[in-house]
């Protein structure tokens, strides 16, 4: 591990240089302090800590997978594995001509349905507003839900998507990764589905291991023979 990346726990000083504090770093006095357990990374002008634990905090433009909890006449509420519930307005699904008198929300999304969506807006004053009006977003009709820790999601994607590409090409599965740690795996062959799920769980459990992509590849190849 080079000098720019270091293991830190809350309160540990990452650096005293005057850099911009980003993710999980706070400036106290002249010290840049980590606020969580993770790996600190120092760049030319900023410093951040990649967390190794913690809940999902919504960020604008994140792709997340959620589950419909309830609805009223104008909107749905979705569980997005966070401390806040996702808010999906009916107009986003029905379009501008939506009428709460004539349109029935349950005709599009019912309680328990899985939805792929994007965080459209979120600030500290209200719950995250989500949208499904984009390509590849909307109700998920088939596939299995796999839950992993949100802090392991970057590991599952890998550098430039290498990890997920490895799993997808070896199993021919289609994998939708929500930044909130909820992942939907769909595959025509049940064998591929099982293998893909196993690989995802392996990443979740062994996220700290070096050369994990090779290990996953090996596991997937071994399964084939």
């Amino acid at each position: 591990m080079d000098g720019r990346r270091r293991h830190v726990i809350p309160g540990e000083v990452v650096t005293t240089n005057s850099l911009r504090p980003e993710q999980n770093v706070t400036l106290i006095g002249k010290k840049l302090i980590s606020t969580t357990v993770g790996i600190s990374e120092i760049y030319d002008d900023s410093v951040k800590v990649i967390p190794l634990t913690g809940k999902y905090i919504p960020k604008i433009n994140d792709l997340v997978v959620g589950k419909v909890i309830s609805h009223n006449s104008l909107s749905w509420e979705l569980d997005i594995n966070s401390c806040y519930v996702g808010f999906l307005p009916a107009q986003d699904v029905f379009g501008r001509n939506f009428s709460s008198h004539t349109d029935d929300l349950t005709s599009k999304l019912k309680s328990g349905d899985l939805v792929a969506m994007r965080i459209a807006n979120f600030d500290r004053t209200r719950d995250p507003l989500v949208t499904i009006s984009d390509r590849d977003l909307g109700k998920i009709d088939s596939g299995d839900l796999v839950k992993i820790s949100p802090s392991k999601v970057p590991r599952l994607i890998g550098k430039r998507g290498t990890m997920i590409q490895t799993i997808e090409s070896a199993t021919e599965a289609v994998i939708t990764i929500g930044q909130n740690g909820w992942i939907v795996v769909s595959c025509e062959s049940s064998e591929g589905l099982l293998k893909a799920k196993k690989a995802i769980q392996m990443v979740n459990e062994k996220a700290h291991v070096a050369n994990l992509t090779d290990q996953v590849k090996e596991m997937l190849e071994k399964g084939e023979s």
Binding site: I9, P10, G11, N24, T26, I28, I33, T35, T36, V37, P51, L52, T53, G54, K55, S151
Partner: peptide, 11 residues
């Protein structure tokens, strides 16, 4: 608290 990933200024 640190294990839960709650942001903290210090232990």
């Amino acid at each position: 608290l640190a294990d839960a990933g709650i942001p903290m200024r210090d232990m």
